[in-house]
């Protein structure tokens, strides 16, 4: 018997699912939205998505080489890199492309965003699983702040920003005009994304929901978390509008809420660990989103998620473990513990 045996502590069998397959699932779930984006916004969208994906993956590759100080043996480096590559950079790249408008004036913008998202937000903090905030959203906000003019209202199909007048310039996703009943788009249009302006991936809610259902079925995300976020946002918006239920559908289907709820807010690394913590997190997120939307009049889903990302650690700190068979503290005292 001349073979190498593996020694480790129990358990000795493991599930086939790895980080890589989870990320692959997310990529598959994003496919419908990607296709819808390309159909709606044409070759420009395709170029954006391509640039973003390639630069995200390349950034990680370069970072890997620099980090491990491997300069020689290019073939060996590639093999090693591919062995540990878990597709999370591709998810970041694709998500980033889906939350920027297709006709921004500058092919370098998705590249800059991807480099920032992967290198600064993710890799500098320690790679997959160590980032404090969602890399794709951080990349988007980085672009948004750096290129305010370009990102602001470049064309009718950038609808992430809302305006108060229902101006043509911002396109028809305009939340407030929808709320006021002035919108020319029906809720069905908003749902399908037909004729709606917006970022590449956020307009077709049907495609996003299809991806969301896939993720739920595959057990990647929990179905109730995005639902909580979406419902709380919608209902709180209704409250803020003076219990006008006409505000529910536009605020749910308008802007980037669905994309944010299904693909951004549920990012594992930047959500609390416990189920209770997650429920609290998503309720707070919903309240914050609806409140800030009302207060600022612009689309704030990405900012809200980033803000809440910083609260994750505090939420985790507030919730101690409660093992099976625990009794509430009062009962403990009664038993004379």
């Amino acid at each position: 018997m001349n073979q190498t045996l593996i020694l480790s502590t129990a358990p000795h069998v493991k599930t086939a699912r790895t980080t890589k397959t989870i990320m692959l699932d997310v990529l598959i779930a994003l496919l419908p939205a990607t296709v819808a984006g390309i159909v709606f916004f044409g070759w420009q969208a395709l170029v954006m998505i391509f640039l973003s994906l390639v630069s995200a993956a390349l950034t990680e590759f370069v970072y890997y080489i620099v980090q491990n100080k491997i300069w020689q043996d290019p073939k060996g480096v590639c093999v090693k890199f591919l062995k540990q590559f878990d597709f999370s950079s591709l998810v970041t790249g694709l998500l980033l492309a889906l939350v920027i408008p297709s006709n921004i004036e500058g092919w370098y913008m998705p590249i800059l965003g991807s480099v920032f998202a992967v290198a600064v937000v993710k890799m500098l903090f320690g790679g997959t699983g160590k980032n404090v905030v969602n890399p794709a959203l951080a990349g988007r906000v980085f672009l948004f702040i750096s290129f305010a003019l370009m990102m602001q209202y470049p064309a009718p199909n950038f609808g992430a920003l809302l305006d108060t007048t229902g101006d043509v310039m911002t396109g028809a996703t305009s939340l407030t005009s929808g709320l006021a009943g002035e919108g020319t788009l029906s809720a069905l249009d908003l749902f399908l994304g037909t004729g709606v302006a917006g970022c590449i991936g956020e307009t077709c809610k049907l495609a996003l929901l299809a991806g969301g259902v896939y993720l739920c079925v595959r057990g990647v995300i929990k179905w109730y978390l995005p639902l909580i976020y979406i419902l709380v946002t919608g209902l709180f918006a209704v409250c803020l509008e003076g219990f006008d239920f006409g505000a529910f559908l536009p605020s749910v289907f308008g802007g980037g809420l669905i994309l944010g709820a299904i693909f951004m807010a549920t990012d594992y690394t930047t959500t609390p660990k416990s189920t209770l913590g997650n429920v609290i997190y998503f309720i707070l997120l919903g309240l914050l989103t609806a409140g800030l939307r009302k207060a600022t009049g612009i689309e704030v889903v990405s900012f809200c998620i980033l803000l809440m990302n910083f609260l994750v650690f505090l939420i985790d700190k507030a919730i101690p473990a409660r093992p099976f068979g625990s009794v509430w503290k009062k009962a403990d005292k009664k038993e004379g513990k």
Partner: peptide, 19 residues
């Protein structure tokens, strides 16, 4: 094939262990 023993990577905080 049965053991699926790989090297550990970073925790991605997916929460499946708690689930």
């Amino acid at each position: 094939e049965e053991t699926n023993a790989d090297e550990p990577t970073n925790c991605i905080n997916c929460g499946k262990c708690a689930d």
